[in-house]
């Protein structure tokens, strides 16, 4: 469990970091919770590791009134750790779903160092954040030495472990909407017993008005090669009264048309069924929290 030789830099500015990775065969290191195990197993052997941890710019978590979403946005620096997001008073009050998702990741040790930028960039098909980010219709702010761009999360994550990141590009921040008052939310997860990764994880946001469900967003992780929005579920539940039967009917569609993963921890069939169960649970809790 000893990595191959590599060069190591720890730049203190984003500019420096971008210049370093522009030289090629560099991997950036954030929390290292995914990268370091891969390097120790020699499944990853970058020639150059660029450690982002000293770049203060990437750690900021702040609210931006105008920004990307009509109701305001939270900007989460790529280096914000799972623990910071889980415990941030700002995130807990303005985007509680994300804090709830973060609190479900791995274990305390992992949450203390793992970062939202690293998790998003790694695009593990069983990672928790992507479910939340899909349900939040989050955006990913990317940067290179030459310029910046912002992609919606569903365009950023392309496939299992594959994103739209270019080799010389960094995730700078994740942008999520400031939650509208009264929105109910929930993240429900069936954790794989060894690693804690999601066998399936479902994030839900709902709004009600005059006894009707007016808004539903559902993000699913773990089921397929990449996280996705369960739009069929959303459509089926919107406009209903949100009864238990409505929830069941909508949740039953959560895995429809999805090529489900199989591994030693869960067959495709089980994953599909659990997606329905956890979708129903997430919707039920979200509705109970909505007002």
């Amino acid at each position: 469990m000893i990595p191959q030789n590599f060069e190591y830099s720890a730049p203190t500015s984003l500019k420096e970091a971008l210049a370093l990775i522009a030289k090629g065969d560099a991997k950036v290191l954030a929390g290292g919770m995914s990268l370091i195990p891969l390097m120790k197993l020699r499944l990853a052997a970058p020639e150059h590791v660029v450690d982002l941890s000293r770049i203060a710019d990437l750690k900021s978590v702040h609210e931006d009134g105008k920004g990307e979403f009509p109701g305001g946005a939270l900007h989460l620096g790529a280096l914000a750790t799972h623990f910071e997001i889980e415990s941030s008073a700002l995130v807990r009050s303005k985007c509680p779903l994300l804090a709830e998702v973060a609190s479900n990741i791995g274990d305390v040790q992992v949450r203390n160092v793992g970062t939202i930028g690293g998790s998003t960039a790694h695009a593990d098909p069983a990672a928790d954040y992507p479910a939340g980010l899909m349900a939040l219709e989050a955006k990913v702010h990317l940067t290179t030495a030459k310029g910046e761009r912002t992609l919606p999360i569903d365009q950023f994550i392309v496939d299992a472990l594959s994103t739209a990141l270019k080799p010389n590009e960094l995730v700078r921040e994740i942008i999520v909407p400031v939650e509208t008052r009264g929105t109910g939310f929930s993240y429900q997860k069936l954790a794989q017993p060894a690693s804690g990764f999601a066998v399936v994880g479902v994030a839900a946001r709902v709004r009600k008005s005059a006894g009707k469900v007016t808004f539903v967003r559902v993000g699913v992780t773990g089921l397929a090669g990449k996280a996705f929005r369960a739009t069929r579920v959303e459509k089926l539940l919107e406009g209903t009264s949100g009864s238990a039967a409505d929830i069941q009917k909508a949740a039953a569609q959560a895995a429809e048309g999805v090529d489900a993963n199989t591994d030693l921890h869960a067959s495709a069939d089980y994953r599909r069924q659990m997606t329905k169960v956890f979708t129903a649970r997430a919707l039920t809790q979200a509705l109970s929290r909505a007002d």
Binding site: L41, R42, L43, D124, P125, A126, D159, A160, L161, S162, Q192, S195, F197, A224, G225, D259, N261, T262, D263, L264, H265
Partner: peptide, 21 residues
């Protein structure tokens, strides 16, 4: 080898991804 020993969780989704590509 190592791939089999440590990659189980991701083999299915990456195999599918590679075939898709």
């Amino acid at each position: 080898g190592t791939l089999a020993g440590v990659g189980q969780r991701l083999l299915d989704s990456t195999a599918k991804m590679i075939i898709r590509k």
